[in-house]
Amino acid sequence: MQRVNMIMAESPGLITICLLGYLLSAECTVFLDHENANKILNRPKRYNSGKLEEFVQGNLERECMEEKCSFEEAREVFENTERTTEFWKQYVDGDQCESNPCLNGGSCKDDINSYECWCPFGFEGKNCELDVTCNIKNGRCEQFCKNSADNKVVCSCTEGYRLAENQKSCEPAVPFPCGRVSVSQTSKLTRAETVFPDVDYVNSTEAETILDNITQSTQSFNDFTRVVGGEDAKPGQFPWQVVLNGKVDAFCGGSIVNEKWIVTAAHCVETGVKITVVAGEHNIEETEHTEQKRNVIRIIPHHNYNAAINKYNHDIALLELDEPLVLNSYVTPICIADKEYTNIFLKFGSGYVSGWGRVFHKGRSALVLQYLRVPLVDRATCLRSTKFTIYNNMFCAGFHEGGRDSCQGDSGGPHVTEVEGTSFLTGIISWGEECAMKGKYGIYTKVSRYVNWIKEKTKLT
């Protein structure tokens, strides 16, 4: 034993070699072989497995989906700052455009905790909710729209109204504003409101030439003092309507412009014939205590009207009353817009006519005020429907199939267009061939041609 100890002390290297040989010859039971080890760690190889990531292109799944990435790591994937920024906006807080917040056709661009709407022409605001041009839906104005110097929408209202708090709607500024039905039992019968379409306001006024200088022999019209197929109006439903009495009662109609003036057809009036105007009328054979009678003290036909040349060209006249009318729910003026808007309103496509005229061709006159909704007829169809001249200051309205029309005794009465609950004068009943005849239409004086003249002559002093 002493000898062994001496050998170990003198030859430590020998001992180490012996131990190493023993270990190498022993069977290893701690580690699995290569094949079995792979069965336990069965993990798919990654895209760049075996390579240094710093030297390969980034992978979106590896960089940002398996674990949260930084902007720089995302930049490695896209290799483009702009594309990385677009991805980053949604990656950080989701897609803010998912709810489609942009209105009126706006395009949404996502941002971090926010979004941006790219608005089409005519709109602005956070969600493109603000109209900035009158060309689109009248700028959301209830009545009139004008573009300011910086191309912003400025709404306005006709006389007797003021802008509401929203700067879009119009509200009454006087007790009985024009064009409004205020009798409670008839307010439910107000005709369907007309909503502004998209309009090209630059070209809204037709490029028409008034044929002022045409000389033409007097034409022989049949029954051209021209509501057939209409309905009984309720008291106060058309408070701007008046009836004219002269040699015979209810020979023509008219509309209240203001307390002192009536507008009617020029062919209705004769110099030297006494005319009485009755406002607030409903049943011409009954006294309903809503009527107001006034005498006409002055007749002003349009300066281009000449019955000797043509009885229905420039067929418009103004009547001055001896005493002002007292405005109330049964006696209310009709609204008159400017030339541009009167023309736009007419193009809405349908209007209402009213009167006490004959209820059928050569038949009896109506006792109760009649009204009828009539569609506008395109000019080409209008011209083809008659052998008589249709001037540019006239328009056609009615039904091709016949059966409904204005008729004798309705002449001078109103053709009105309702705009968001307020009625505007767009025409004056003038003439036609018979009444409600198939293929024939009622012919009306186009008020847009005469609004400046009306307003100039009827100013209240």
Rank of each mutant, 00 (worst) to 15 (best):
Q2I: 10
R3Q: 05
R3M: 06
R3D: 04
R3E: 04
V4M: 09
V4S: 14
N5C: 12
M6N: 09
M6R: 11
I7L: 05
M8G: 09
E10P: 12
S11C: 12
G13P: 05
I15E: 01
T16W: 08
I17S: 01
L23H: 02
L23P: 01
L24T: 04
S25E: 03
S25D: 03
V30N: 15
F31H: 10
K39E: 09
L41T: 09
R43T: 12
K45E: 13
R46T: 15
R46E: 15
Y47F: 11
N48H: 07
S49R: 08
E53R: 04
E54Q: 11
E54I: 05
E54S: 09
F55Q: 13
V56C: 13
Q57P: 09
Q57S: 06
L60T: 13
L60C: 14
E61H: 12
E61L: 05
M65Q: 10
M65A: 12
E66S: 11
S70W: 04
F71I: 14
E72Q: 13
E76W: 07
V77W: 09
E79T: 13
N80D: 10
E82Q: 15
E82H: 14
E82S: 15
R83Y: 09
W88T: 09
W88R: 15
K89S: 06
Q90S: 14
Q90K: 15
V92S: 12
D93H: 09
G94Y: 05
D95A: 14
Q96G: 13
Q96I: 14
C97S: 03
C97H: 03
S99N: 14
N100P: 06
N100H: 14
N100D: 07
C102M: 01
L103V: 09
G106W: 02
C108L: 03
K109C: 06
D110Q: 14
D110A: 08
D111F: 13
N113P: 14
E116L: 15
E116M: 12
E116H: 06
C117D: 02
W118H: 07
W118T: 09
P120L: 06
P120T: 06
F121H: 08
G122L: 06
G122T: 07
F123L: 13
E124R: 04
G125W: 02
N127Q: 11
C128T: 03
C128W: 02
L130S: 10
L130R: 13
L130K: 07
T133S: 08
C134K: 02
N135P: 11
K137P: 13
K137H: 07
N138W: 12
N138C: 03
R140A: 14
C145P: 00
N151L: 06
K152H: 09
L163M: 05
L163I: 05
E165N: 07
N166Q: 03
Q167M: 08
S169W: 05
S169E: 06
P172W: 03
P172T: 08
P172G: 05
A173W: 05
F176L: 06
G179F: 00
G179C: 00
R180N: 01
S184E: 09
T186G: 10
T186H: 06
K188G: 10
L189R: 08
A192F: 05
A192V: 09
T194R: 07
V195G: 12
F196A: 05
D200R: 10
Y201R: 06
N203W: 07
N203H: 09
N203G: 11
A207I: 09
E208M: 08
E208Q: 09
T209E: 10
I210C: 15
D212T: 11
N213E: 08
I214G: 04
T215W: 06
S217F: 12
S217Y: 06
T218P: 11
S220I: 10
S220N: 08
F221G: 04
N222S: 13
D223N: 06
D223P: 09
T225R: 05
T225K: 10
V227D: 13
V227M: 09
G229M: 13
E231H: 12
D232T: 13
D232N: 12
A233L: 07
P235E: 08
P235S: 11
Q237M: 07
F238G: 02
W240T: 00
V242G: 01
L244F: 05
L244C: 02
L244E: 00
L244Y: 03
N245R: 06
N245V: 08
G246R: 04
K247R: 11
V248L: 09
D249M: 10
D249S: 07
A250Q: 09
A250E: 10
C252M: 01
C252R: 01
G254S: 01
S255W: 00
I256Y: 00
I256T: 02
E259D: 07
I262C: 02
H267W: 02
H267C: 02
C268I: 00
T271F: 05
T271N: 11
V273Y: 03
T276V: 08
T276W: 07
V277Q: 00
V278L: 07
A279C: 03
G280N: 02
H282V: 10
I284S: 07
E286H: 10
T287Y: 09
I297G: 03
I297K: 13
I297D: 03
R298W: 02
I299Q: 12
I299F: 10
I300M: 10
N304K: 04
N306K: 07
N306A: 08
A307K: 12
A308N: 11
I309Y: 04
N310L: 03
N310M: 06
Y312T: 03
Y312W: 12
N313F: 07
N313P: 03
H314L: 01
H314T: 02
H314S: 06
D315M: 01
I316T: 00
L319F: 03
L319P: 00
L319N: 00
E320G: 02
E320M: 05
D322V: 02
D322G: 08
E323W: 09
E323R: 04
N328Y: 00
S329D: 15
S329C: 05
Y330P: 01
V331Y: 00
P333Q: 03
P333R: 02
I336Q: 01
Y341N: 15
T342D: 04
T342A: 10
T342I: 02
F345Q: 02
K347F: 07
F348S: 15
F348Y: 12
G349Y: 03
G351V: 01
G357P: 14
G357N: 03
R358W: 10
V359R: 15
H361I: 14
H361Q: 04
L367D: 11
V368M: 15
Q370D: 04
R373E: 04
R373S: 14
V374E: 02
P375R: 11
V377R: 08
R379M: 15
A380M: 04
S385L: 07
S385P: 04
K387M: 14
K387S: 07
F388S: 13
F388D: 13
Y391S: 14
Y391Q: 14
N393A: 09
F395M: 02
A397L: 01
G398V: 05
G398A: 09
H400F: 11
H400E: 13
H400Y: 12
E401P: 14
E401C: 08
G402F: 12
G403S: 14
R404I: 12
S406A: 09
C407F: 14
Q408Y: 10
Q408D: 15
Q408L: 15
G409N: 15
D410P: 14
D410F: 06
S411V: 15
G412H: 08
G413A: 14
P414R: 02
P414W: 05
H415S: 01
H415T: 01
V416D: 00
V416M: 15
T417F: 02
E418I: 09
V419I: 14
V419G: 01
E420D: 11
G421V: 02
T426S: 02
I428K: 00
I429Y: 14
S430H: 07
W431F: 10
E434T: 12
M437P: 13
M437Q: 09
G442I: 14
Y444M: 13
T445M: 05
K446L: 04
V447H: 00
V447D: 00
Y450G: 01
W453L: 01
I454R: 01
I454M: 11
K455Y: 04
K455D: 03
K457L: 14
K457S: 14
T458E: 01
K459Y: 12
K459S: 12
L460M: 15
T461N: 14
